[in-house]
Design a protein around this nucleic acid. Structure first.
Lengths: 123, 123
DNA sequence: GCCCTGTCTCGACATCCGTCGAAGCAGAGA
DNA sequence: TCTCTGCTTCGACGGATGTCGAGACAGGGC
């Protein structure tokens, strides 16, 4: 369940390759935009942004779905749907251990997104 | 046309205030997520990501719509629609000067989004 | 084996989004 | 004033998205 369902176009994105020059310095090619936009899109929902933050800032680097769901006024299926969106965007990984499923962040892609948005300190 | 049509919830976002601790260090509060998610959402479309890049990397810091439109296989109204989305997300400003409309980036909000996604070098 | 708990998938629904053509508005020039 | 060009807005259409309830599946305990 953890890796296979990430779309093929995002696979190289999840590596540690230094892929992206800042938005503000070079034009983003169409192919790069097509690959990166889904990651921003996944963060473009308040629930997913909070989920991403809860996962990425979790102690031990991972968090159980059972700790995520009660934090929202949403049903289990809806949270599961949002987690799937984060998974398919390559932002998180999931792993089942016994009864519970644990999620952890993928720092590499976060780094790449941050690098893309980087602005020189004194514009 | 330049500022008034930005939604009210984003106004404080466009200031230079150091608003956001990294995603990976503190949980993003619901209010912050509600304010920031629309900005990521605006970047979550390949066309808008390229537009944002073309505007942010333009020489002189601004670019004419007439230079943006021919770069895409899309009609004028569609490009205008995407530019409006970037405007309403507070990512760009527009200004009419004579016949043409010029767009420029707002570096402050880009900095804030990048800061939110920041990951420690040796996470 | 049976049930209980936790999570995901499926189907349905309302809403939102990307795209287009047509029309409107603002400036420039004849 | 009349017309032309550039950009936006409007209205419409098809497809994607967020949400839910119901049901399926996996693992643990009896």
């Amino acid at each position: 369940m953890s890796k296979q369902d990430a779309p093929r176009t995002l696979v190289d994105l999840t590596a540690d390759a230094p892929c992206c020059a800042p938005l503000t310095q070079h034009q983003v090619p169409a192919e790069t935009a097509a690959v990166l936009a889904p990651a921003f899109k996944a963060l473009g929902d308040p629930v997913r942004l909070r989920l991403m933050s809860m996962i990425a800032s979790a102690e031990g680097g991972e968090v159980c779905v059972c700790d995520l769901t009660p934090a929202f006024d949403l049903t289990g299926p809806t949270i599961s749907h949002h987690l799937k969106a984060l998974r398919e965007a390559g932002l998180v990984d999931a792993e089942r251990r016994g009864t519970w499923v644990w999620y952890r962040a993928r720092p590499a892609i976060l780094r790449q997104l941050a690098a893309l948005l980087a602005v020189e300190p004194a514009g």
